[in-house]
Structure formats: C-alpha cells, structure tokens
Design a protein around this nucleic acid. Structure first.
Lengths: 210, 210
DNA sequence: CCTACCGATCGGTAGG
DNA sequence: CCTACCGATCGGTAGG
C-alpha cells in the first residue's frame, strides 16, 4: 500500500491521458466501484453492479482485490493521503499565510476537478463505517495541516479566528462539488478559491451586520 | 403526507421538549433510522439494527411505516420541505438583500442545530437513489428560493456574482455540520452566518490576490 | 476470468 | 408488537 501512496499522483496522471475503456481492468474496477460508493455508500454498493459495469463476472473482482473494503481503501489514498501530503508540505513553506492558503486550496480543488474516480462518497462517515484506520489517520493529518495554515494567518491578523473552524468543512464540500460537476473549469476553481478566501480574510470582516 | 409537512415544525418543537425515551414509538423509529441513514446510506441501513435500537423486533417497524423508504420520505420533510417553505417566504420579503440572506441563513442553521433527527445523510444522492420525487422537488424549490435571494443582492451590487453558485453548496454543508456537531451553540450559528456572508459580500472582494 | 455455490443478511408478509 | 418465515441479494470461496 505504501507504494500505492507514493505513486498515486503519477498514476492519476497516466489515467487522465487515456480513456477509461483503455485502462487496465484493475483501474476500471476502481472507477466503477467509486460510483456506487458515492451514491449508495459502502454497504449499499453492490459488487455485482460494479462487475457488470466493468464487463466481467462478480467473482472475478476478487482476482484483483482481496475484498470490497480493499477497493475503498485504495480510493481513500487518492481522496485523503495525496491531499494530506500536499497540505503538510505547504504548511511548512515560507511566505505569507494568504498566499500559502490560496496556493493549497487551488491545488486541492484542481486535484478533485481532474480526478478520474468519483470520490464524492469518501466522507468521514464512510471511512469510519468502513473501518479504514489509515484513511482516518490521513484525514486527521490533512485537517491538522490545513488548520496550521489557518492559524499561521490568524496570528498576524490576516485571517478571522472565528472563520477558521469552517474552512476545512467548506473546502471538503467544494472539493466534492468539483468532482460532481461536469461543467467545472479552471475558472470555477478560481472562483471557489476567491469564495473561500473572502470568507476567512479579516479584510472581509470590516463591514459587519451586527 | 401533506399534514406531516404542515405540522412538521410544531412536531419538532414537541419532540425537543421531551427526552427521546419518552417519545412515541413512531418518532423513536424515525430517530434510530436516521442514524444509519446518515452513516451507511439508505441501502446500507439495516432495519434490524434500527429495531434493536428502538427495542422492538424488526417486523414491528412495519406496523408504523409501510416501508423503509417511507421512513426516509418522512425525514426528508424535516430536511427539505420545511426549509424550502421558509426560504420561499423569505425570498418574497421586503428589505435589503443582505438582511434577507442573513436572516434566512441564521434560521436555517438554527433549524439543523436543534434538529432531533440525524439528517446528515439526506443528501441529494441519497434522495435520488431512494427515488423520493417529492423530496427532489422540495430540494429544487429550496435552491431556487436561495438563488433568488442571492440574485436580488447581485443586481444592486451587494453580492459578488461569482460567489453565488457556491452559497447553496456551502450552506448545505454548514447545516450538516450543525447537526453533526454536539458542541454547536447559538454562537457557532452566528459565526457561520458571518462566514457565509463574508464569502458573498462584494465589500469582501475589495482586497484581492490576483 | 469463468461457473457453481456457500452462509449470512436483506426488506417485507402472514397470522396471531 | 410478537414468532415464523419468504424470496432476493449480499460478499466471498472453490476449482478450473
């Protein structure tokens, strides 16, 4: 699994270059498994439906993966481990807090916008109910890193402290929206970055209602 | 079902006043069904698990509801019909666009914060996979009403047009967060309202990064 | 990657 | 609200 994590970004680049019908069976299984995970949850997803979409019989799935849960675990690498690694690197980078956050958010949203798999169902609840310890740890690392980026901007007064808890939540949702939306472009990503920054910048808060 | 919709707000007020152990069996079934819906999705939720939590046998559930889907449908009233009704009323109210949006968002988040059922799983996907036409229509009405509130503020220049598409998405997520979070207070609601308004107000956009 | 098949669990019914 | 039970579907294995 550790090699999967390390090669995940390059592997996604390879997949993007080809149509899914030209992918290896193993990747086509992941693609077709990700859709029912997103719409019906882990328990509600049927391996027979997945196999039918791939064009093979259901027992053949288990020549590529030892279990249904292993499919979820590998998708969780793309959803959580890769972003967590990026967030941790950015959190240690020098520069202004605003630039760091804007840069990470733009990368994050672009990662999901161009993601070949349907990761919308990879919520905390899904991972928790699937019992994926490694995915839970990756999610925690991601939140820690993003929160550190935010706190680095609260001290110099660039970010509004009260907005900080909502940023990871909103970013997660905007990420899913990028996966979900077929019409999302790079312009959509830019607008979403602006949306999130406006919500957290103290300069936004000079005009208040209360 | 129409009477359920009309009395839904009052019924929730009644439930809040009592501990779930004092509720009628029918409402305790809804409560215990809402939790696996939220964590495992509609298909993944087991009626036997729900019955066990309520303290009755699984077939007894069907003396209170004709099907598992009917439980989902009634929960969808609390999640979608009630907010849609409120949003439509607010969208027709006079006053400034900022005040209207702030007032509705505050009501919306407070509705979910004090919601006795666990509505986190009532996503569009869940409703779609459950085939609940009425819930899909209510969701569409809600989005139309919220979008109208926003467009009313774009014309006079109060709201940033590029932020508009992200507001319903972010509001949905913040609502789930209010249901999810045991530590959410009225102060949390106020902070979330500020967060969302800062993201959409044009006055927030005077300071840009690009 | 196939056919054949396993025990377990699913939503829902019959009858009291 | 109970016991008994239905056909359907589930994830996964055996053996080729």
């Amino acid at each position: 699994m550790s090699t999967v994590v390390e090669n995940a970004e390059g592997h996604v680049l390879d997949l993007r270059a080809k149509r899914p019908s030209r992918w290896a069976t193993r990747d086509r299984i992941l693609l077709e498994a990700s859709r029912p995970f997103a719409t019906h949850g882990f328990r509600g997803a049927s391996t027979r439906q997945t196999a039918e979409q791939v064009g093979i019989r259901q027992p053949s799935l288990f020549k590529h993966f030892p279990s249904k849960r292993a499919m979820l675990a590998e998708l969780a690498v793309y959803d959580m481990d890769v972003p967590a690694r990026h967030a941790e690197v950015v959190a240690r980078t020098a520069g202004s807090a605003v630039d760091r956050l804007a840069g990470y958010v733009a990368w994050d949203l672009e990662w999901y916008r161009t993601m070949p798999f349907d990761l919308r169902g990879m919520t905390e609840d899904l991972v928790r109910s699937g019992g994926l310890i490694l995915a839970q740890e990756a999610l925690a690392r991601w939140r820690t890193a993003v929160t550190r980026m935010l706190e680095q901007g609260v001290e110099p007064g660039e970010f509004a402290a009260h907005a900080v808890p909502f940023v990871p939540i909103a970013l997660e949702t905007l990420s899913w929206h990028m996966v979900n939306s077929k019409g999302a472009t790079e312009r959509t990503v830019d607008d979403a970055v602006d949306f999130l920054l406006a919500a957290v910048l103290t300069s936004s808060r000079d005009v208040r209602r209360r």
